[in-house]
Simulated assay, not measured.
Amino acid sequence: MDKVALVTGGASGIGAATVTRLHGEGALVAVGDLDMDGARRLSDELGDRVQPFHYDAMDPESITDMVAAVVARFRKLDILHNNAGAVGREDTTVVDTPLAMWESAMNLNARAYFVCSRAALPTMIENGGGVIVNTASSSAFAGQLTQTSYGGSKASIVALTQYIATQYGRQNIRANSVSPGIVVTPALLRVAPQLVESMAPTLLTERLGTPEDIASTVAFLASDEARYITGQNLCVDGGLFAHAPYVSF
């Protein structure tokens, strides 16, 4: 691949799987994360072509500084995978979700992607182009009984992706989003373990998703093989939204 990639939230889950996949494809990979112990462990495991970079997704200045540090280290940036995010336990219904929870979700899951993309785009354009792949969610496309803030923030990421693709496409920038369905990660098992059992019957595949399933999709969208794909959202959800609720039983 011979590209320089930055993966935010790259120390664990989908991010770590994407770092591993992009590294395997030959990219130099920057692991952006608040968890530097995890980022360093992944770097030590994969070798010198993977480097950890500390940042706080809730701090716009920290995001900008991190992107600048990556560019200073590798001299360019070809691929940005905006992936960092979280689900809060207080994120429930519209009435019951605290305003602070809504604001936190928007800042972490939407503002951070905007700031990181804004910091990366000038370098990409100067170097002749680049690719941005944003992690959205199936929660962006259908209402749930809970996770109101998370769904709202992820929907904004899909829109942001389309705006980036539209505004910078003629400067050789491609932007797409990936919307995972149920993906078994440590974060999911920690926050909502009941989802694993309850959601399995609604899928059209024989198994739940893994971080590697999402990583392979990100790697494809970041590659030259996807050079004619931009401004799109790709659902990687085991067929979750391909059918009416009763069809898979």
Score class of each variant (00 low, 15 high):
residue 101 M to E: 15
residue 60 P to E: 13
residue 111 R to N: 14
residue 141 F to G: 10
residue 168 Y to F: 15
residue 146 T to S: 08
residue 75 R to N: 13
residue 148 T to A: 09
residue 106 M to A: 08
residue 56 D to E: 15
residue 64 T to R: 13
residue 113 Y to I: 03
residue 85 G to H: 03
residue 181 G to K: 01
residue 71 V to K: 02
residue 118 R to N: 03
residue 121 L to R: 03
residue 127 N to E: 15
residue 174 R to M: 13
residue 140 A to D: 07
residue 109 N to Y: 09
residue 59 D to I: 04
residue 56 D to G: 10
residue 181 G to R: 00
residue 200 A to M: 04
residue 136 A to M: 04
residue 152 G to L: 07
residue 109 N to A: 04
residue 200 A to T: 05
residue 157 I to T: 14
residue 137 S to T: 03
residue 78 D to M: 08
residue 102 W to G: 03
residue 197 E to H: 06
residue 176 N to K: 06
residue 131 V to K: 14
residue 198 S to P: 00
residue 177 S to F: 14
residue 93 T to W: 02
residue 100 A to K: 14
residue 200 A to I: 01
residue 60 P to C: 07
residue 153 S to N: 13
residue 98 P to W: 06
residue 162 Q to V: 08
residue 106 M to L: 14
residue 81 H to N: 06
residue 187 A to E: 06
residue 109 N to W: 10
residue 128 G to V: 11
residue 159 A to S: 14
residue 134 N to M: 05
residue 166 T to M: 13
residue 86 A to N: 05
residue 67 V to G: 06
residue 67 V to Y: 01
residue 149 S to G: 15
residue 126 E to H: 15
residue 146 T to A: 07
residue 197 E to Y: 01
residue 89 R to W: 12
residue 56 D to W: 02
residue 143 G to L: 04
residue 88 G to F: 12
residue 95 V to W: 03
residue 154 K to Q: 04
residue 172 N to E: 08
residue 94 V to N: 09
residue 184 V to H: 05
residue 85 G to M: 04
residue 172 N to I: 14
residue 130 G to F: 10
residue 73 R to C: 08
residue 146 T to C: 14
residue 179 S to L: 08
residue 187 A to T: 12
residue 134 N to D: 09
residue 167 Q to C: 07
residue 104 S to N: 08
residue 80 L to I: 01
residue 181 G to W: 01
residue 174 R to Q: 04
residue 165 A to K: 04
residue 74 F to G: 11
residue 150 Y to W: 10
residue 151 G to H: 12
residue 101 M to L: 09
residue 84 A to H: 00
residue 75 R to F: 02
residue 188 L to P: 03
residue 166 T to A: 15
residue 184 V to C: 12
residue 97 T to H: 00
residue 136 A to W: 05
residue 168 Y to V: 05
residue 149 S to E: 10
residue 170 R to T: 11
residue 143 G to W: 08
residue 174 R to W: 08
residue 122 P to Q: 09
